[in-house]
Amino acid sequence: MDAYDEDPRGPQGPDGSAGTRLPEEPPAPPPPPGPTAAPATEAAPAPEAAPAPEAAPAPRTGVAALSPRYQVGAALALAVVAVAACVHLLMVFLSLAPANTVTKQHGKAIEEWVYPEFEQNWKLFAPNPLQQNIAVQVRAEVRMRDGGLRTTGWTDLSAQDGAAIDGNLAPSHTQQNLLRRAWDFFSATHGTDNRPVGLRGSLSEQYLRRIVVMRLYQDDPTSREGVIQRVQIRSSTTNVQPPPWSRERVSDKPVYRLLPWWSLSSDEAAGGVR
């Protein structure tokens, strides 16, 4: 609690530091810098609310005001909260720390405590920031109104996202995270042979497929005129070129990862993803 200890030069309330002010009392009026300066908590047009009630005795609080019987209850509460807070922080710490002797022994208990509500990941740009632009591209096989099948060219959905982000002060999660993280999810739950791993693998496939179908029906002229039958997705990974003043050289050729053609469910084909 020392982290925000009071500034000794700052204005102090009559009850000592503001940090220990009792919550039941009206806010202590700070030394008035101007005639109309009211404390922040007061309504501006209610200066009569400012003076503390002189007559009323201050309400008693804290363990000192409790009878011994109730003090036991307070001590118990203090112990429980202190232990819970320490255990919680320890669990979160262990979930963030690299694999070690303790996490190897108690991994299950840590996971059960932390997941799902206290899950966290603060390694966005660590140990190294991402140094590649990964673009998700899609093409579709579309049944046209005349009954013919047409295969569209590749549409770069990530390039569309990038264009939407350019010059944008507050990019939407739909532009910045939706496709990017769906691809992360997909690659994390699939082997290099593009086979899904577990429940999440199959969920990630449906998710990715639904995103690209929604996007094609939104923007692709051919898809909008017909009914999409199948889609194929590929990722294109390009190295970010090193800074001009650096002597490093990396390839600027994109590397593709091609996924198999996926058939759509009837709901997806009918444009049910919105």
Binding site: G19, T20, P23, V63
Partner: peptide, 11 residues
């Protein structure tokens, strides 16, 4: 103990 029981610190 008195400090953490008598007031909610850091209002």
């Amino acid at each position: 103990v008195a400090r953490v029981t008598e007031a909610a610190l850091g209002p």
